[in-house]
Amino acid sequence: MPLTLTLSEGVLPVGKEKEAVQLITDSLLKNHGLTGNTVMTPNITANVHIVPKGSSFSGGEEFLGAWAEWKVPSFALADQAVIKQHFAEVTEIIYKLSGGKQSKDNIYVNVVHAVDGGWNLDGKAMNNEELGAAISEG
């Protein structure tokens, strides 16, 4: 389940990116009842992108922003209560790690769902049923 964390330069102090990824990963696992799951935990991956100052825009104007985007199977982040809780936690994580400097209004979280069968785990394409079975073993 890849996370893409994109940050305007200066949103987080240098070196806080790793902590942000760990806390966001922990939140996703917790909110799905999968903390400690040996199948899911190593299959949550992340990329961090730092956008140079002057290269992030809102309404055509420069600003500082943070974006957390998940790509997940259709059954993950599908329950509204889970979505609201996790998105609120991600927003709070970025806000706190920024030292309270990053406006919560400019922290964005979203999810993109893969079609059933459009997911690869351990080198094998799996549908939702197969994924669920593999995850339940962890």
Rank of each mutant, 00 (worst) to 15 (best):
H113L: 02
Y95G: 07
L5S: 10
T45D: 01
I24V: 13
S58D: 02
A66D: 09
I50V: 09
Q22F: 06
I50Y: 10
E130M: 08
S74K: 12
S74R: 05
I50H: 06
D116T: 04
N31R: 14
T4G: 01
G59A: 05
D105W: 14
E62T: 15
Y108Q: 08
I83S: 07
K71F: 02
W67F: 08
H32N: 14
A133V: 03
M126Y: 06
P73A: 03
A88L: 06
S56V: 09
G118R: 05
Y95E: 08
N37R: 08
K96C: 11
Q102F: 15
I94D: 11
K84D: 12
G117F: 01
V39D: 05
L3V: 10
V51R: 05
Q85L: 14
Y95A: 12
G123W: 00
Q102L: 13
V39S: 09
N43F: 00
L5P: 06
G123N: 03
T25Q: 10
G65C: 12
T6S: 12
T35D: 14
G65V: 07
N37K: 09
A81L: 09
G15K: 08
I107Q: 13
E69R: 11
N120E: 02
V11R: 11
V48Q: 00
E61M: 07
H32P: 09
E137C: 02
A133C: 05
D122M: 09
E92I: 10
G100T: 10
F75C: 02
Q22C: 02
K101D: 15
E9T: 02
K104Y: 11
G54M: 04
L131Q: 04
Q85H: 15
G117C: 01
A81Y: 10
E19N: 13
N37D: 11
V72R: 07
L29E: 10
T35H: 08
V48H: 00
A46W: 02
I83P: 07
A76M: 10
P52M: 05
D122I: 00
E69S: 09
N31S: 09
A81I: 01
S98T: 11
N127F: 08
W70T: 01
T91S: 15
D105H: 13
I93N: 12
L131P: 01
S56Q: 05
